[in-house]
Amino acid sequence: MIERSAIIDIVFWAVAALAIAASVMVVTVRDVFKASLFLAGSFVAAAGLYVLLRAEFLAAVQVLIYVGAISILIVFTVMLVRQVSGGNRSGGPFFAIAGGVAAVLVALAISYAAVNSKWSDLDRAAAGDERVAAALTGEYQAQQSPGNPDVDLVKVPIDDPEKARHGVFERTTNQLGTMFIRDYVLAFEIISIVLLAALIGALAIARGARDGGTS
């Protein structure tokens, strides 16, 4: 007898193996074009992991931005620089050591985050523990604090058990949107300024070459 969670486990190990295999290929394959294809493959596998975590919005955005836009631009650049097709040059021991140190640091950071996350809470919420789910999600409600004439939106735990159980995973899009324009609005706006600066920078570089600048 096999539970449905066992199917999910099988899918998880398959997707995880795919992600690791693709990532290993990215750094071992000599042909840069193929490496960028494998990079796109590992992005897709990461999106699969997001689906298993029931973050569908994040998964769709991952595919749209990382696969559909960033990987495409990488491949496009590789195609325009044809010299790399025969294989990239080896950077020598310095690059190997620097890359190894960076890889270890990233692995440590991810392990730290994985160990310190309260996975058990999420598991209990997913298994239908309404109290945990309500505490994890919450809902924005209008409240008026004394002395302050303005109505403020405050996050309060959900009381309705049915709503709470579905609330954790059902409406991630709305939750992300609310978070972006309330709790993390400063980061959100700073990122848009960074993107605008990048856009203007790209324009300036392109125009400079045409007007007889550095070409």
Binding site: A40, V44, A60, V61, V63, L64, G68
Partner: peptide
């Protein structure tokens, strides 16, 4: 979003 994401892979 799923539609847009999946169809953007087509550009490969």
């Amino acid at each position: 979003l799923y539609l847009i994401a999946v169809l953007s892979v087509e550009s490969f």
